[in-house]
Nucleic acid binder design. Sequence first.
DNA 1: TCGATAGGGGACTAAAATGGTCCTCAATAG
DNA 2: CTATTGAGGACCATTTTAGTCCCCTATCGA
Lengths: 155, 155
Amino acid sequence: MLKLSRLTDYAAVVMAQIARYPEQAHAATELADAVQLPHPTVSKTLKMLVRAGLLESRRGSLGGYRLARPATSITTSDIIGAIEGPVAMTECSHADGDCDLVDTCGVADNWQRVSLAIRTLLDSVTLAHLAQESPLKLPVQLPIQSVTLASRAEV
Amino acid sequence: MLKLSRLTDYAAVVMAQIARYPEQAHAATELADAVQLPHPTVSKTLKMLVRAGLLESRRGSLGGYRLARPATSITTSDIIGAIEGPVAMTECSHADGDCDLVDTCGVADNWQRVSLAIRTLLDSVTLAHLAQESPLKLPVQLPIQSVTLASRAEV
DNA sequence: TCGATAGGGGACTAAAATGGTCCTCAATAG
DNA sequence: CTATTGAGGACCATTTTAGTCCCCTATCGA
Ligand code: SF4
Ligand code: SF4
């Protein structure tokens, strides 16, 4: 299904929640409660987000989590990357990829382009966009670049 | 990593291989040999592709597989859909989705739009594109539509 | 009609990824 | 000093994925 892992989804939900009140620090318990998810699980994703540099944490009483950067400069690929690793559709689309077929499969190059296109798209959607609560009607256009695919004239 | 399952990748490789010689029927054994993958596995993916209506099969001697439609009207989402089911980033992005948080998570709507954008992108890449053998540098731009995050589409 | 060739269906297993829990340690405020 | 809150990591159950195998059916041509 080409789908996000559930944890990644949680991460997005939690990040959005934080983004809506960026000034305050949010305790894991509080967040877990707000999004109706088990505390340990939320806690785990929060830790991952911190490690990826998307959140800052503060221990002790009055501690909690807050955004490391403004919501407008955190992208969905950042979030996905924090939980699942870099966005890459095929084995050969990321740095550590190691596929035996890379020389013979004949599609590696093009998959990589597609992968890049998706990454670009996800880069253009920020946490600020995600956190918009209601289905806004305002047509905020995301500039999704055309991505060059190797192609022959016939297209 | 938001990545395709390995079988999906195989499916693409095999489809591309068939697409390069669309006139002949290709036996599973032949294909397995061509792409250097174990025969039973290739066979399995071929069956899935047939069931999804992307390939036609013919039994008996002189039988084999061939494309059910021209390569230009088979898209990458078709292929992904055949193996993994419809492209959907989040649980709530596809028909049978069932997520308890849908009313409270606050990001469902926007994830669905992102998901739609990706689906659109994958729809615009055809098997004919994928099958191009060499990494052509010719910058033929694929018109990937800008997708508006906010516009309430006909989802 | 027979037999060789090729696909169809589906059961089965091994291995890996995922989701979720828990426990102990470290930092911080007051 | 102590209550609070995060860090880190071990651990387990479950699901998903990948891969294999067996037996059946269809088609062709001798
Ligand atoms: S595209 Fe070719 S090389 Fe890249 S992963 Fe799939 S098979 Fe391996
Ligand atoms: S986005 Fe909200 S509703 Fe959709 S799957 Fe994630 S949590 Fe459930």
